[in-house]
């Protein structure tokens, strides 16, 4: 089958769904973080596919932006996980429900 725009969008949608369901099912902060990365990647795929089918550079540029934001998110998120782990010896989001130590 020759892939067309719909194929790429379908793939992206499936990946996004898996990521979204994963965020809900995972109780582990790092697992949730990885699912969010997966969702971001699904969006990137649509950007690149549209950029290809409209011959426009904008889509690829915004993929670049999304990657930069994802890198920020990784740095901050992992910093939070490490300081949280130091206090609680766990990265379960259920353990993060208490506001005071």
């Amino acid at each position: 089958m020759e892939p067309n725009l719909a194929t790429y969008l379908g793939l992206s949608g499936i990946l996004f769904t898996i990521g979204a369901v994963g965020v809900i099912y995972k109780r582990n902060a790092i697992g949730m973080f990885m699912c969010i990365e997966l969702m971001l990647n699904a969006v990137n795929l649509t950007f690149v596919a549209f950029a290809r089918y409209y011959g426009d550079v904008t889509g690829q540029l915004f993929v670049f932006m999304v990657m930069a934001v994802a890198a920020c998110e990784a740095a901050i998120g992992l910093g939070i996980f490490i300081s949280f782990f130091r206090n609680k010896i766990s990265v379960d989001v259920d353990d993060a429900s208490i506001l005071k130590n």
């Binding site: 067309n4 725009l5 719909a6 969008l9 379908g10 949608g13 290809r52 089918y53």
Partner: peptide, 15 residues
């Protein structure tokens, strides 16, 4: 997703 899959078949299909 499947809705998009069918909706998009009408838009540009050649790169």
């Amino acid at each position: 997703t499947f809705f998009i899959f069918y909706a998009v078949t009408k838009t540009p299909n050649t790169p």
